[in-house]
Amino acid sequence: MGNMFLIASYAVLWVGLLVYIGWVALRMRGVQGEVETMRDLIAERERQAEARATKLAQSAKLTAQTASAAKTPKRQPGAPVAKAQRR
């Protein structure tokens, strides 16, 4: 009878410990997966923001170029071509 309780004690302890270690490992794997997913999401958002900023800068540059082109006086037909324009 005593042996039965002894075996039961050791079995409960070892099975319980193994289950606990397995549970910790599973939780760790889940959390690590979550960390990776979130990092990817943050990196993706950063990339998108960067692309948006580049696009904005390009469009601002284009607008500035168009504005400066509009400011330069148009040559009247028959008028002499300016040196800069000739070049």
């Binding site: 309780f5 039961a8 004690s9 409960v12 302890l13 319980g16 410990l17």
Partner: peptide
């Protein structure tokens, strides 16, 4: 403590 209670109970 859970294991202490279980093993103690068996004893």
């Amino acid at each position: 403590t859970t294991f202490v209670l279980i093993t103690g109970s068996l004893w």
